[in-house]
Design a protein around this nucleic acid. Structure first.
Lengths: 128, 128
DNA sequence: CGCCCATGTAAGCAACTCCTTATGTAACGA
DNA sequence: TCGTTACATAAGGAGTTGCTTACATGGGCG
């Protein structure tokens, strides 16, 4: 019901908003209070609060209370995970670039020569 | 007023779904048709189609039509942009780790010593 | 004590997401 | 021509997002 979403999705979703990315940029220069984070944005405070809640749910920030101020600090572990995923896929793609050509040639051939056997409706990659 | 959303947000949002990430993983091993991409998922074809539309809108895939099959191929440029953003922020944070301590000490002092001058309601970092 | 300050929570609303079923549309094969 | 395959589009619904205004909480200051 509520949210059985995996961590990585939470992180990417948190990053998928310019306001939240700007907040992280600001926090990358050092911790800040909620008021300091809100300052650059033409937006109500509750809106800011909710953005921070999204960032916190993704594990990207921590909030600690000194007196009446909440100081937000950046946490990098989720960014590491995200970076790892992206870089892994960039790498794999470059390694297997040759497979693309091979596959394309197979598909094109079976499409142009039209049915090698009875294999047209099945799947285009079937080339015995 | 459809969508004046920036590219990076579109990319991160596209990555914020396990189904779409799995599709990209599959495509990293080489191009595939829509049917091949749909096979591992317990989901209707229109759902698959819409996921592919999100990936295409983010520039992460290209669709080319051979005969009646649409072959999807991965595009890495958006992943490069995303990776760059994440890595830049990971780096900045590690470089300025010392600023954290300094700031925390400032805040803590002005909170514990309670009002350095008249500066309590203003901002917590004001320490003349 | 009473007041302001920084922040959080509640409730409401338009827009979007992610899925569904039903209905095209184009290409191939018999 | 007719049926089938591969896919897209249309329409709709449950849930979520991103904002708003109004109110609550909890600490410092006079």
């Amino acid at each position: 019901m509520g949210g059985a979403v995996d961590d990585l999705s939470l992180v990417f979703q948190a990053l998928a908003d310019p306001t939240r990315r700007a907040m992280l940029s600001r926090l990358a220069a050092g911790p800040a209070t909620v008021g300091e984070l809100a300052e650059p944005f033409a937006m109500s405070r509750p809106a800011i609060s909710q953005h921070l809640k999204v960032l916190e749910r993704a594990g990207l920030i921590e909030r600690t209370a000194h007196a009446q101020w909440r100081t937000c600090t950046l946490r990098t572990e989720p960014l590491d995970e995200a970076s790892e995923w992206v870089d892994r896929h960039r790498g794999e793609w470059n390694e297997r670039f040759d497979l693309l050509d091979e596959h394309l040639r197979r598909v094109k051939r079976s499409a142009e020569r039209a049915a090698p056997q009875g294999g047209a409706p099945g799947r285009p990659k079937e080339t015995p």
